[in-house]
Simulated assay, not measured.
Amino acid sequence: MTESPRIVVLAGGVGGSKFTLGVREALVRRGAPEATVVVNTGDDLWLSGVRLQPDIDSIVYALAGVNDVVRGWGRAGDTERVNHELQAWGAGWPWFTLGDLDLGTHLARTGWLRDGLTPTQVLERMSRRWPLGAHLLPMTDAEVDTIVHVRDGAAMHFQEWWTRHRATLEPTAFENPGIAAAQPAPGVVEAIAAADVVLLAPSNPVVSIGPILAVPGIREALATTSATVVGVSPIIGGRVVRGMADVCLTAIGVETSAAAVAGHYGARRDGGLLDAWLLAEEDAALAPAVEGRGIRSVVCPLWMTDAAATAAIVEHALAAADA
C-alpha cells in the first residue's frame, strides 16, 4: 500500500464521528487524499415536519468542530427556545430535544429535499459550509428508518426505543422497512471498489454498521473489492464503550465481546467481511480466538480519547492492511 492510500470508512453514531476525526488526522499527516465516509442513515426520521439525520449530523458537526462534545450529540452552545415552544404546542416528542441551531440544519435539509434534491445532493451541499476534510456519502438515498420490535409485541422507531426508553425494552428484532429495494447512494460502490483500505468504524455493529451492510450491493462490493477490510472493535474489556450496543448484540444472539463481534462480521475467506480486526489491549487474550476465525488480529490501545489517539488507532489499522 502507498503512503497515500485511498480510504473508505463505514461509520455511524458518536463512535463513528470520533473515529472519522482520527481518520482525517492520520491522512493529513500522510498527505493522503480525503477519506470517503459512508454514513448510516438507518436512524433517520421525520419529526415535526422536518427530516432528521442524526448520524450524518454527528459526523458533519464533529468534522466541522462545532459538535457538543459533552452531550455527545448536537451543536455546541445550542439553545432550546424553539424546542420548548414545540412542546408547548404538544408537537414533536417531549423526550427528544431539538436544539435551535440543530433545527436550522433540519429545516435547511427538509427544504432542499422538498425542492427535489436527493439525500446525497443535500449532504454535498451541507459539506460546503465547513472544510470537513472528508467526502461524506449517505449509505442510500432511500428512506429506510429503523423499527425496533420489542418483547411485548410492540414496534417503535429506533429513536423512541433508544432515546425515550434507553433500550430498556427488550428487543426481539431490528427492521429497516424498504431496505431490500434500496440502492447504494451514488458513489458508494465505486468508492469501495477503488479503495486501498476499507475501515469499519467502532460503531454499533447492529444499528449503525448493520443497516449499511443491509443495503443491497454494499456487502457484495466489500466481498469483491481488492481493498483490505479492517474492523475496529467497539468492545473494550468485554464492555461497550458508549451507548447500548450490548442490548442490540444480545438481541441478535451475539455475545458482547471483541471476538464475538469479529465473528459476527466474519472472515472474508469464509464469505464474511474482515481481513483484520483491531482488539484493545484489555482483550489481548482474545487474539487467538479471532485468528482462529481466519481474521488477522492486531492488539493496540483503542480508547479514542482525542484525535491524536484515534489517529494512532487508524495507523494501526493501516499497518494491518500493509501486513
Rank of each mutant, 00 (worst) to 15 (best):
residue 252 I to F: 07
residue 247 V to N: 01
residue 174 F to I: 06
residue 199 L to N: 07
residue 200 L to S: 02
residue 235 I to F: 00
residue 155 A to T: 08
residue 142 A to P: 08
residue 136 L to Q: 10
residue 259 A to C: 03
residue 256 T to Y: 03
residue 172 T to E: 14
residue 159 Q to D: 07
residue 181 A to C: 10
residue 124 E to A: 15
residue 136 L to A: 11
residue 159 Q to Y: 05
residue 207 V to Q: 08
residue 211 P to R: 15
residue 177 P to I: 10
residue 167 A to C: 15
residue 205 P to D: 03
residue 259 A to D: 14
residue 183 Q to N: 13
residue 139 M to P: 08
residue 160 E to T: 12
residue 191 A to C: 12
residue 195 A to S: 09
residue 215 V to W: 12
residue 158 F to T: 08
residue 224 T to H: 14
residue 218 I to P: 12
residue 129 R to H: 14
residue 133 G to I: 11
residue 231 G to I: 00
residue 178 G to S: 10
residue 158 F to W: 09
residue 182 A to Y: 11
residue 234 P to L: 11
residue 166 R to P: 08
residue 177 P to N: 12
residue 154 A to V: 01
residue 137 L to G: 12
residue 242 R to A: 14
residue 156 M to C: 10
residue 190 E to R: 06
residue 181 A to D: 14
residue 228 T to H: 09
residue 157 H to N: 03
residue 178 G to F: 11
residue 196 D to C: 03
residue 140 T to P: 06
residue 230 V to H: 00
residue 127 S to Y: 00
residue 238 G to V: 05
residue 258 A to K: 02
residue 217 G to H: 02
residue 141 D to Y: 09
residue 244 M to P: 13
residue 243 G to D: 08
residue 146 T to F: 01
residue 223 A to C: 02
residue 191 A to D: 06
residue 263 G to A: 00
residue 261 V to I: 04
residue 198 V to C: 00
residue 220 E to G: 01
residue 220 E to C: 12
residue 204 N to S: 08
residue 225 T to H: 08
residue 183 Q to W: 08
residue 144 V to T: 15
residue 194 A to E: 15
residue 243 G to P: 06
residue 226 S to I: 05
